[in-house]
Simulated assay, not measured.
Amino acid sequence: MPNIDYYFATISPFTYLAGPEFEQIVQKHGATVTYKPLDIMALFAATGGVPPGQRHINRQEYRLQDMRRRAIVAGLPLSEKPAFFPTNMAPSSYAIIAAQNAGGNVGALVNALTRSVWADDKNIAEDDVIRDCLKETGFDPALADSGLLEGAETYARNLEEAVSKGVFGAPFFISDKDERFWGQDRLDDLDRHLSGEF
């Protein structure tokens, strides 16, 4: 059974756009996933990247066009300039870490949280929003308030590990054969890899 280490950020639009298709690929191949939320702004700083708001206007404009097109292809609603972006990723990431430890459909939770940012204009730094996402996806809403120390430690460790394994953006997928795939637009390649094509 293949495993995928999945590095992502809960405020990343391309993590949102990857979500449903990635989960379909996982199911198709019977893969397991280790979900590794991280601080994307800190990852940019550590690997030579630049946060979206600090990029040249040409890059900012292209990013918005690309997001719009990718959303149409994915069949997902998208607010190109969400009301709460950027926001503090840590609380939602801690909830994902706690949910993974508890067991359940973590992919659905990641999708609910990212949808909250990019389609529903909600602030995923707020406990009530996180609790609603937990409840919607079958988790105990109290996970939003539990395991915070472990969540903080794992969140920091995910960032360190990501840098050491060659990660520089989100979403980023690493197979157990150390094949690396960056971006929502590389899901077809991940699918082909899991099918044994490369």
Rank of each mutant, 00 (worst) to 15 (best):
M1A: 12
M1T: 10
I4C: 08
D5I: 02
Y7E: 01
Y7R: 06
A9L: 03
A9M: 12
P13Y: 04
P13R: 05
F14L: 11
F14P: 01
L17V: 10
L17S: 02
L17Q: 03
A18L: 07
G19Q: 06
P20C: 08
E21S: 04
F22E: 04
F22I: 04
E23L: 12
I25N: 01
K28N: 06
A31W: 00
Y35D: 04
L38Q: 06
D39G: 02
I40N: 04
M41E: 11
L43A: 05
A45N: 14
T47N: 06
V50K: 05
P51I: 15
P51E: 08
P52K: 06
P52D: 07
G53H: 10
N58F: 12
R59A: 11
E61V: 14
E61L: 15
Y62W: 14
L64H: 09
R68P: 00
R69A: 12
A71Y: 09
S79E: 14
P82G: 10
A83E: 15
F85V: 08
F85P: 03
F85G: 03
F85E: 07
F85R: 11
P86Q: 09
T87W: 10
M89W: 00
P91Y: 03
I96S: 06
I97F: 03
A99D: 07
N101W: 00
N101D: 13
G104S: 05
V106D: 02
V106T: 08
L109N: 03
V110C: 11
N111R: 09
N111L: 08
L113V: 05
L113E: 01
S116Q: 10
S116R: 14
A119G: 06
N123M: 10
N123V: 09
I124T: 05
D127T: 14
D127S: 12
D127K: 13
I130E: 04
I130H: 10
C133T: 13
L134R: 02
T137H: 02
T137L: 04
F139T: 08
D140I: 09
D145A: 13
S146K: 15
L149V: 14
L149F: 08
E150I: 01
E150Q: 13
E150P: 00
G151C: 10
A152Q: 15
E153Y: 00
T154Q: 09
Y155K: 05
Y155W: 15
A156N: 12
R157V: 06
N158H: 11
L159Y: 08
A162T: 07
S164A: 15
S164M: 12
V167Y: 02
V167T: 07
G169D: 07
P171V: 07
F173N: 01
F173L: 14
I174K: 01
D178L: 10
D178H: 09
R180V: 11
W182C: 08
Q184N: 14
D185P: 06
R186K: 13
R186T: 12
L187N: 06
S195C: 00
E197D: 09
